[in-house]
Amino acid sequence: MTADSEYKRRTVLKAGSAAVTATLVATPAATPAAAAQTDSSSVDMTLRVNGRDHRLAVEPRVTLLDALRERLDLTGTKKGCDRGECGACTVLVDGRRIKSCLTLAVMRQNVEITTIEGLVRGDKLHPLQEAFIRQDALQCGGCTPGQIMSGVACISEGHTRSADEIREWMSGNLCRCACYPNIVAAIQDAAK
């Protein structure tokens, strides 16, 4: 590990697109300063996920989502857009729902992270997981972990007083297969 631990947030936040800018004109070669910035630098960190401490060494620019998926092999959390638009990466941090693609792993130490893998108790599904199956609130399953984590939070926030309220508070989680009415029904079921 080197001392250079500059958080490359700009790189992280731009990562969704590698389209090259300013390409119609010749561009200067990378400056030495820019070259220096590209030095890789891992930092040791501990992430508490689903009640277990995971020690890992990754660069500070690694998002929580990529740390979960590519380093901890917790691939239940999905990447749909990598820029906060789809909700597939929703996890709970201290019980609050967040989009794990929009936060850096290094920033999420000393908190309780809950992913879809952490909802099961032994062999028993969480009531919302059961309700998703019962109501057929999933098709391809690509959005489903994010929907369920978001739904768990939606219930604990108390945003389930009406179907319309659930629709509104679940609208940050896209479902391209479009299971929306069934997702609403599942959340109503589990909120009972």
């Binding site: 998926r69 917790l74 691939t75 239940g76 959390t77 999905k78 990447k79 992913t115 879809i116 893998e117 909802l119 099961v120 599904l125 997981q129 998703f132 199956i133 019962r134 057929d136 999933l138 399953g141 690509g142 489903t144 972990p145 369920i148």
Partner: peptide, 18 residues
């Protein structure tokens, strides 16, 4: 009910990028 429901609601279903 979907027989793959459990795999998909638990995160156990492995997709390509996983």
């Amino acid at each position: 009910e979907r027989v793959d429901g459990r795999a998909k609601v638990t995160g156990g279903a492995r997709y390509t990028a996983d």
